[in-house]
Amino acid sequence: MSTLTQQTLSHLDWLEAEAIHIMREVAGQCSSPVLLFSGGKDSVCMLRIAEKAFRPGRFPFPLMHIDTGHNYPEVIAFRDKRAAELGERLIVRSLEDSMARGSIVLKHENESRNKHQSVTLLEAIEEFGFDACIGGARRDEEKARAKERIMSFRDEFGQWDPKNQRPELWNLYNARSHKGENIRAFPISNWTELDVWQYIQREQLELPSIYFAHTRPVVRKGELLMPVTDLTPAKPGDTIEEVMVRFRTVGDVSCTAPVESDADTVEKILAETATTTITERGATRMDDQTSEASMEQRKKEGYF
């Protein structure tokens, strides 16, 4: 008690300390947690937080990626490299296996696989007996997420019931669950997109190359830029343009669009993020635009 007024942490230090505390609570309360790692920027931050929380020890959980089979190859390569550098165990479970088993049936071949991730995730949870999945979702991403708990309870069908959430007070988290149920834990709930970029800059975190400006063939569809890839070829009549773009979120190829940008460094992305006029998912995610409640609906079905 040597100081008269209390010193306070900077906002990034505070957010980091909170996230470390949450990860340690999961490790302390749950017997078999797993950290979901996609190679995306939020999960890159999560790995740095896990290092700060548990080094010099190993992480008290494996990493897991639910692979839609439709990811950008740069992101998959980055995912494997990062896991190897950390020396942590990476589990990959793929939607294609669920499709082969018949637990996922696509309406048509080109249907976005994003919403089907929940099936493979629930199968993996059952396979490994995970009682907690740590994810990098943030409350500022989408309004159904604004009311999400930091420790969010899911029943044995993986369902989120927004009307029946556990109250969450102070920093006293309740991650208890019965067998078959599980907890989704969100250590960076209170971070915004800007906080994530500031953290990436401060910690000098490496990211998959598609986050930075590059030239890519795209087709304009309304306000969205649709990348032209093997999975999403141009249709007859489409005009293909070579545009300087970057991705703000990385997900399934079929539902993630880039934004026009020449920001090729973290500093330039930060400057753009601070002055953007479009929300992160609004600019880039086709799956959130179908209805006002689409994210809530997918969460109820077991999506993150």
């Binding site: 906002h11 409350r139 500022d140 309004k143 159904a144 997420r145 604004a146 009311k147 927004p162 009307k163 959430q165 709930s189 209170n190 915004t192 800007l194 906080d195 006002e292 409640a293 809530e296």
Partner: peptide, 28 residues
Amino acid sequence: LTDGLQAEREQGITIDVAYRYFSTGTRK
């Protein structure tokens, strides 16, 4: 902005605590 859940939108009332974020550049 704050009525995030379907039930809340249907009923036109806020049921649950919502968290919102802003920054002034000096403080979050």
